[in-house]
Write a protein that binds this DNA or RNA. Structure first.
Lengths: 191, 191
DNA sequence: TTTTAATCTAATCTG
DNA sequence: CAGATTAGATTAAT
């Protein structure tokens, strides 16, 4: 906060210290496990989201099954669903407000996470698109029924194709320059 | 921060006010565009990461090409690469520290974002796995050369399969119960 | 549901 | 550009 320099001085150092304590606890201290705030993995997110599509309030048993599958506690799954419902409601309310705001004129196209030009406009949930064509769609007509499966499949197809193109390009280059060092190559590229 | 209640009182309110101001500016005020802190989209992340695999310090021209493709400014791409390099170095140093810490005994298996049981153990970058088999691999042998393409493709395949299974299960159920309300169905499922 | 606070990261600053 | 820092946004947990 730029407005309160005092707090920056007083608290900034404190928080830095705390961070360092956290790091050290994480790495070396005895088994006082306090790994506060676990973050869910993409896999967990994937399945949780899928279930959320079907029901925003899964039964205790449903949660139990998923929890076991994802190596989470039932409670964690429950909390995740609570937070997700809250988020959905929050965003929905916000959008309603915005719609009221610019209902008269000002029909701006809303920004959309997937609105750029690398996703297809198909809307059915499963199959297709991975096995069909090696050519990439480049125009997206946004459709609210596009599911995470579509998103993931398309992203995978795109990146895969992109990767192959790059590979071919690089093969051609390798005839010219024989070696390149390439730092970080293959070192946790997904981070 | 729990340790400095004073700062919480003094600054917390301030920041809350600021947040509200931001919200309002976003929606209704005149074109004083201050949408600070754009977040990159998954697409952008995908391509940026791909390029990062090849080189962590792309040339100005490389950045320019990618920036145009991703609808970003050259500067934004540059900053992204700077921050990514910093992150990579940060994590690398941290891991080195941890290795030093528990080098003697204590050979704990390190937690790994993708270590759960839904990813295959193949390591080549492109092709395969999407087109080959409808059966899902359930054991992951972590390999540092597994690329984002692998991750994405596998995730897509998994979720897709999972979705189809659920669909079949639901079809069977529908013979029993004819209708279910299902709130949130198809409403921004990817959020 | 609302709030708290931990985490992540876009952006800025310094050398 | 690297490294440190700031501050905006998200979200696990209460």
């Amino acid at each position: 906060m730029t407005t309160f320099k005092l707090s920056n001085n007083a608290i900034g150092e404190e928080s830095v210290l705390q961070q360092k304590m956290k790091r050290q606890k994480k790495s070396n201290q005895e088994g006082i496990h306090k790994p506060k705030r676990k973050r869910i993995t993409p896999e967990q997110f994937c399945l949780l989201t899928e279930l959320f599509q079907q029901t925003d309030t899964p039964s205790h048993d449903s949660r139990e099954v998923l929890a076991k599958k994802l190596n989470m506690t039932n409670r964690e799954v429950q909390v995740w669903f609570q937070n997700r419902r809250a988020k959905v409601n929050r965003i929905r309310l916000q959008e309603q407000e915005e719609q009221i705001m610019n209902c008269t004129s000002d029909k701006k196209v809303k920004f959309n996470y997937w609105s750029s030009n690398h996703l297809p406009s198909y809307s059915s949930s499963s199959s297709s698109s991975m096995t069909s064509s090696p050519s990439l769609p480049h125009e997206l007509i946004f459709h609210p029924n596009v599911t995470p499966i579509d998103i993931l499949a398309t992203a995978a197809a795109y990146v895969q194709q992109w990767d192959e193109n790059e590979l071919q390009r690089k093969r051609k280059q390798q005839h010219i320059e024989q070696e390149q060092p390439k730092k970080y190559k293959s070192w946790r590229p997904w981070l």
